[in-house]
């Protein structure tokens, strides 16, 4: 099956300042996103995430490289009929109401009047703006504008959703609602490509991620591949441990045990050490409260990738 997004060797330079100094924003970006995937595009501020998205939509032209979106060349207006896009910090026509704006967008998408009348209130309700539908956008809060942006992105049942920082500017409740909305789109079979630097969002909802640092894609793969199957450590918490037993377990641990009142937590490097430690603790009639395997977090991978790229 053909990928929904496929780009190869994409580069983007900008000319800045009076003398037109060349600044490279994106370097040799090669990426593929499959149909039905939720792809998280990560990177610190200024990494080139928005630039990539604008290239996908044809808002800017690449300096080098090429690609396809939904089987069409980058920036092809026909492809955009099937793309829903939420810009970063969106801004819409302040003199329109939310309802009028969605009607305008629907007409630009070539939607029929009947379908538009059906979808507009449904989408406004889905993003929680049904009560503000007839209010001018100039009276919307930042979160409401973000929600309206999501509603216009979902208009016309797009096959691909491109969301640039969809959770930025939202409170924790709003963020959760957006996460749930993305999960609903995934369940409906839509491909979602979204950029963010809020890592917990990505860990919760993405199938695959790409990490962009300084305009280069430094990591890419499924969450399982990136986070790894291997354990980083195993944390065992127990009570009623005699001193000599604790000394024996400590020799197996990665770091000194953490003692809090009667509770002791030890970090063990792997399963072999866990087996021995459990044998010792059970033998000493200690009470084991929990055994928690610790895997690598996306945050540690992100920070590591960032460090490597800057080095």
């Amino acid at each position: 099956m053909e990928p929904v997004i496929q780009i190869g060797g994409l580069c983007k330079d900008y000319r800045v300042g009076f003398w037109g100094r060349r600044v490279t924003v994106l370097r040799d970006l090669t990426l593929a996103v499959q149909a039905g995937e939720t792809f998280g595009y990560l990177g610190p501020n200024g990494a080139g995430k928005s630039t990539t998205i604008k290239l996908l939509l044809g808002l800017i032209q690449p300096t080098a490289g090429d690609g396809q979106v939904l089987g069409f060349s980058l920036g092809d207006p026909v492809a955009r009929r099937h793309i829903g896009f939420l810009p970063e910090n969106p801004s819409f026509y302040e003199y329109l109401t939310g309802e009028e704006f969605l009607t305008y967008c629907g007409r630009l998408l070539g939607m029929r009047r009947g379908r538009l009348r059906e979808q507009t209130p449904a989408l406004l309700a889905e993003v929680g703006l049904d009560r503000a539908a007839r209010q001018q956008i100039r009276k919307y809060s930042k979160g409401m504008v973000q929600r309206l942006g999501l509603a216009q992105a979902l208009l016309g049942d797009p096959k691909l959703l491109i969301l640039d920082e969809p959770t930025s500017g939202l409170d924790p409740i709003g963020r959760k609602e957006v996460r749930d909305l993305i999960l609903r789109q995934r369940a409906a079979g839509r491909t979602v490509f979204f950029s963010t630097h809020i890592l917990p969002d990505v860990e919760m909802i993405c199938d695959r991620v790409g990490i962009l640092v300084g305009g280069r894609l430094v990591r890419s793969g499924s969450m399982r591949t990136l986070l790894g199957e291997e354990l980083e450590s195993i944390e065992v918490t127990a009570t009623s441990i005699p001193a000599e037993t604790l000394a024996a377990v400590e020799r197996l641990a990665l770091s000194p045990p953490l003692v809090q009142g009667n509770h002791v937590m030890v970090r063990l490097p792997g399963e072999a050490e866990l087996e021995i430690a459990l044998f010792i603790l059970v033998g000493a009639k200690s009470r084991i409260l929990s055994v928690v395997p610790q895997r690598r977090s996306l945050e540690s991978i992100f920070l590591e990738a960032n460090r490597e790229a800057q080095a």
Partner: peptide, 14 residues
Amino acid sequence: ERRTIFSLLSKPVR
């Protein structure tokens, strides 16, 4: 200037 053009030109508008 107000970047409203992003949501407009991301539709099938030439």
